[in-house]
């Protein structure tokens, strides 16, 4: 899933300073799972905002709405009947959702209520961890199913640097060394000989470096 963190109340209040009528939009997908921008978070944020503004004598009207997805226009269209009643949209979907809402309502200012961080998994209740950077050319079959791009702090493709110690990364004592994980897994899979192969320089054109990406499936187009 796409993992996001809600921005601090202070930062959101600051962005909302000039406005009195706000449409607060949550999303039922990834940000719901990572507890940053789902229906529950919409409710909590709305209450916090109203309370703070009331304390400052700056009443605020907030319409709470959580869409099935903010990355598909058919769901974004659902707020069309009343979007005009509000001065500003505060979206707590991921960065893709926030932008897409803005693309659909071009005269509306859309403010981000979260910081979008990474593609990851739920480790346990309340803990999420990065797994993928969407580089566009997967090498997991060569690295024991553990991604060196996302999980090594230096994205090294040919093994651990000299800072790997007791399974941890030099960057942070609480961070697993990605290459330790790769080597452990290769051993479990009886594939340690794969480590001997030199992985050549990577073609980054499939990643962000090639410019903003677009995917096309002719067979699915109408």
């Amino acid at each position: 899933m796409i993992v996001a963190n809600r921005k601090s109340l202070e930062e959101i209040l600051n962005m909302l300073k000039p406005y009195k009528k706000v449409l607060l939009l949550g999303c039922n997908e990834c940000v719901t799972v990572c507890a940053a921008g789902g229906e529950r978070e919409v409710g909590v944020l709305a209450s916090e905002l109203k309370l703070s503004r009331a304390k400052d004598g700056q009443e605020i009207e907030i319409k709470e709405q959580t869409l099935e997805r903010q990355c598909d226009h058919e769901y974004i269209d659902q707020v069309r009947p009343f979007v005009g009643d509000y001065e500003v949209i505060l979206s707590i979907a991921c960065g893709a959702g926030i932008q897409y809402v803005g693309e659909k309502y071009r005269t509306k200012i859309v403010l981000p209520g979260v910081n979008t961080t990474f593609l990851g998994v739920t480790l346990e209740q309340g803990v999420w961890s990065e797994r993928c950077q969407g580089c566009g050319e997967c090498v997991l079959h060569m690295t024991g199913g553990v991604c060196p791009i996302a999980r090594c702090a230096k994205s090294l493709l040919n093994g651990p640097c000299g800072g790997s110690s007791n399974g941890k990364c030099e960057v942070d004592k609480d961070l697993d060394c990605g290459w330790q994980l790769i080597i452990d897994r290769l051993k479990e899979l009886n594939q340690l000989d794969r480590y001997e192969e030199i992985i050549p320089v990577k073609d980054w054109t499939t990643s962000r470096d090639g410019g903003p990406r677009k995917r096309l499936r002719e067979d699915l187009r109408l």
Partner: peptide, 26 residues
Amino acid sequence: SGDHQKFGDHPKAKNVFDIDSIQLIN
């Protein structure tokens, strides 16, 4: 490869790591 920028005087810098030390040798 190079030490991670976290240890230095510009920890907010973006790192590159386009290639790694073994690829640099090559």
